[in-house]
Write a protein that binds this DNA or RNA. Structure first.
Lengths: 107, 107
DNA sequence: ATACTCCTGTAGTTAAACTAAAGAAGCCAA
DNA sequence: TTGGCTTCTTTAGTTTAACTACAGGAGTAT
């Protein structure tokens, strides 16, 4: 049974989602990833929420409680300045990796 | 301290290397990855050899002892039929992932 | 001899992603 | 008004890939 997400890419996906959408709750992030991947990235909550906690502890995101579009209590996460820096770094690393893999696969 | 390789891509890299080069020993695989990545993928032996063991146990590769180009004893690994199938699958998954990430990053 | 490169191996650790569960709270239909 | 559905969060415990940090044999060159 394969992992849902490619390990090492989850942080990038979450950070980029917050960058694009602005402050979003966990559930919304998960939905966004399902939508943008046509249902492929159906993320476990058991992966998402610990990841959000991790990133908040590292100072890449911050959180506040609020009320969702559906009138539920929800925890909204937002990129911090450090998170924006981190996102940039991760995108660069990702692109480097893609280049290497492309070279390898087409060899 | 970041990981040397993007987790989840090591098997693909090893399988593809064997596909391209034919039977190769562990040290040779590591060198190949250094070369094709311009020194970026400087793989730990502590990652490589356990990975080779894993893949042999799963039947994706087989091994035989031989003598290297430098006249040393070396263990040569080769793709099996299952390994070739697995490689195909992994490449497809990788390409799918690249597509999703591209869509995400460019959104 | 001794130092260097080539080549393999493994014990133990870390941490990311997982399974599996629980639960609160608003919405809606019977 | 009850019971089910959806939304949204949380956390305990497991797995496993990749890591650090070793150790060691064997050929080659000085």
């Amino acid at each position: 049974m394969p992992r849902e997400v490619l390990p090492g890419t989850l942080d990038l996906m979450v950070l980029k989602t917050l960058d694009t959408l602005g402050p979003t709750h966990g559930y919304g992030i998960a939905q966004r990833l399902i939508q943008i991947s046509d249902g492929i990235l159906d993320l476990n909550q058991g992966s998402l929420y610990p990841a959000l906690l991790r990133m908040e502890q590292r100072g890449w995101i911050s959180s506040d409680y609020g009320i969702s579009e559906n009138n539920r209590k929800a925890r909204y996460y937002a990129l911090t300045a450090d998170g924006r820096k981190r996102l940039k770094t991760e995108i660069e690393q990702w692109k480097g990796m893609v280049q290497i893999m492309t070279r390898l696969i087409e060899a």
